[in-house]
């Protein structure tokens, strides 16, 4: 390896380290400032909590309030909603793609449903589905489904028209065109819709847990609000941020792996 190449690689590595370092620094600065302000009573730690109190609360939740099972509940609901949302989205996108007139007919309705704040449907869902975990999952699917449908459907529409023409010239039928070109060509779009979908699913689950739940991170946050213990609320939010970050990273890694294989 030439010296220039070494220098180039070194510079890239150096740049990466700097970025990671600054990111960590920002988090630490934020935490320390927060802690400092509450120690000096500049902000009211009863309302704003503090990093130290949050850590204490998390360990308390872990020992006395079965924090792990709350996390697992939220994760479980998210994953179910995610899987169902993606599969349903995929099926609906195929139907819309195959029946262009239908797609045109439902287009304004999809837009309407998409812009409707789904939380408004919460009370109805609870009455229809029941005050249980199913309601939470339904809520979450309502939030992630339309986005999945639209992303995957647009992926289908962007299929290279020459490839379709090629298959037509080979006398392929509709199903063959779908399975041999349209779906494989949209593979990367479908994979990247997973990333949007996982975030949407978590948002939906937390919204659902706010409305009706006996367990989960959303439940902890609502519970904390009701007994006016802001430490629990803040801890819930911090845990939620970590969960969403980890889920996103997993899907991101999965996406990179799936895309590189091809």
């Amino acid at each position: 390896m030439s010296n220039e190449q070494k220098l180039f690689l070194k510079r890239i590595k150096y740049n990466k380290i700097i970025i990671r370092f600054i990111q960590i620094l920002i988090i630490l600065c934020f935490a320390f400032t927060w802690q400092f302000l509450s120690d000096k009573n500049i902000i009211n730690s009863f309302v704003f909590s503090s990093p130290k109190k949050i850590l204490e609360t998390i360990s308390l939740l872990y020992t006395n309030y079965d924090l792990i099972s709350h996390i697992l509940t939220t994760l479980y609901e998210t994953i179910i909603a995610f899987a169902l949302g993606i599969s349903l989205g995929f099926i609906v996108a195929i139907i819309l793609y195959e029946f262009k007139t239908l797609a045109k007919i439902v287009d304004p309705f999809l837009t309407m449903i998409n812009s409707l704040p789904k939380v408004a449907l919460g009370p109805i869902i609870i009455i229809w589905v029941g005050a249980n975990m199913n309601s939470i999952i339904v809520m979450s699917i309502l939030i992630n489904l339309i986005i999945s449908v639209m992303t995957i459907y647009n992926g289908f529409l962007n299929t290279d028209s020459y490839k379709i023409k090629l298959l037509k010239s080979l006398k392929a039928n509709k199903l063959q065109i779908l399975t041999k070109v349209v779906i494989p060509e949209s593979y990367s779009t479908i994979i990247s819709s997973l990333k949007i979908n996982i975030s949407m699913s978590l948002i939906g689950v937390i919204m659902g847990e706010f409305l009706v739940s006996k367990k989960g991170i959303g439940y902890l946050i609502i519970y904390g609000t009701q007994i006016f213990n802001l430490n629990i609320v803040m801890s819930g939010i911090i845990i939620l941020i970590i969960i969403s970050f980890i889920l996103y990273e997993i899907v991101d890694k999965l996406e990179k792996k799936l895309l590189n294989e091809k």
């Binding site: 290279d160 020459y162 490839k163 090629l166 298959l167 080979l170 006398k171 392929a172 063959q176 041999k180 070109v181 494989p184 593979y187 091809k262």
Partner: peptide, 20 residues
């Protein structure tokens, strides 16, 4: 455009018509 499918090998690409 050559219209080769990037997710198939050269041989599989040549087979596509026969498969269909």
């Amino acid at each position: 455009s050559d219209c080769l499918f990037p997710w198939l090998t050269i041989y599989e690409n040549c087979l596509i018509g026969l498969k269909i």
